[in-house]
Nucleic acid binder design. Sequence first.
DNA 1: ACTTACGATAAGCAACGCTGATGGACCCGC
DNA 2: GCGGGTCCATCAGCGTTGCTTATCGTAAGT
Lengths: 294, 294
Amino acid sequence: MDPHLLTTFVTVARHGSFSAAAAELGYTQSAISQQVAALEADLGLALLRRRPVEPTPAGRRLLEHAEPLLLRLRAARADVLRTAAEPRHLLRLAATPLAVNPVVAARLAEARARQPRLEIRLRMCRAERLAALVAEGRADLGLADGIAAPSDPLRLPDAGPMTTTGVTEEDLVVALPAGHPLAGRASLRLADLIDARWLRTPLCPPARLRDLVGEGFPAGLEYEGDDVRTALNLAAAGHGLTLLPASAVPAGGGGGGGVCAVPVAAPRLVHRVELLHAALPPGAAADLVAALSG
Amino acid sequence: MDPHLLTTFVTVARHGSFSAAAAELGYTQSAISQQVAALEADLGLALLRRRPVEPTPAGRRLLEHAEPLLLRLRAARADVLRTAAEPRHLLRLAATPLAVNPVVAARLAEARARQPRLEIRLRMCRAERLAALVAEGRADLGLADGIAAPSDPLRLPDAGPMTTTGVTEEDLVVALPAGHPLAGRASLRLADLIDARWLRTPLCPPARLRDLVGEGFPAGLEYEGDDVRTALNLAAAGHGLTLLPASAVPAGGGGGGGVCAVPVAAPRLVHRVELLHAALPPGAAADLVAALSG
DNA sequence: ACTTACGATAAGCAACGCTGATGGACCCGC
DNA sequence: GCGGGTCCATCAGCGTTGCTTATCGTAAGT
């Protein structure tokens, strides 16, 4: 169970090809073959069926373990190295698209006002990658957004010992086209929308949506981008509904396109932003954490 | 960050000696020295201060990561091997001392009545080791007990993907000596007992106790064993109080010794038993899980 | 100051793990 | 049906790694 062999194995499984994995990892095909054989010999069972190359049941099981395991390994390495790193004046921030709401942006500004030398690089990524980025030290601080019950923590992938702090919670609204039968309502229940068509977009992860409104919502339009205005335009045009934090939808029904934001009354849900970071190394980061935590 | 080197490192740190670690691992002292040097070279920083041998700050950080990392590695290995293992008629059960309460014992009996060929080996261990035992496949099922808020899960060490199910919840009582001023009460609040002397015993883990009644409880008697009657006898003799599930204290004030069980009214706490298991391999285990889950 | 204990270092050697070449199985087009 | 191409397995060759044995340097105890 050498991590080296494990990496090779997941790469082979991902590509479905020994040769392709060899090319990616910079080995010869022969080496890859031997490494996989070594791993199989070590465990005493076949992990891959050949031609076509696909994991056996045992292999599939191992794949489930391997990815988080390798992540934790990289995270541990990064964490140890962090203890020896000198303080940086550059803070690398990673955030999911909806995490930088007005409150967060304002608090960031306050922190920068207090520390003029502080430089910030903000990078966007999906929620699944965020924890990994922070754990591996490729970002110093992470801002994740998601939908949860009030004062419940978000369910982020576990990538080792990390601190998470709630930053903001705000109302969750459904973005409806102006002409929608429910558009005028003061609030609505998700249960009223079981049959509705939903936008599939990373702004509101389909997996979470499925948890909330049930399995069989009809396939609508899929938007793979991050832009809220695009999503709102799509919603306004009737391509599907979407859940957003109240602050993301312009007030007053929105000028041209016309979407209407109706708060979700039941189940009781909020849009939550959380700050996550590993052991705080430098002084500047600690101050920023304090500022963001409010 | 080879796990091999990691193992060596934690062994050296545990023994505080290269030679002792070499003896335990079956290497020469020279090999150990080279392995530690290799790990330090890989990370580019010193992990151990020599003579006396003790971890540097970075080394301490790595130690925190290494143990759970190695555990997960063993767990992954065990889990993969389990997929290929043939069903056993012997089920290895691991439990913390207070986990096998009357309800659990009864449900175990029901399951055995349904499956006469089922053989069970029950082994006791501390809560900290339980998750590791199950994850590594050295036990098929684990029964953990602990104190939690009603319907809150226990906080068990994370050892990879495992299923945990609540089994029972029952009232939590304080075992008081019969002559104690609060002994007659129908219920009490933990806050009333901040100044009390508590037994330190694995039956009620001191760490948890500290969370509940605060830091500075005076050092009383420490009982390292598992036996409830011994603990009750100690409590009756005034060596200190202890928290137990109601079913562990004989009703009616207890004949000879005389302990009095007073339920804890605030904070709202229960004694909870949880069942934990990895991917369910054989048919017999699945049935037992169903039986225990009630 | 001598002794002892312990970790670091050097030299030697076996084993591991890579490359490059070759072989066998399967797929595809003709 | 046949030949070429693709892909993985296997083999031989070889450099590197990582162990052992032996020796040295050094700190602590007497």
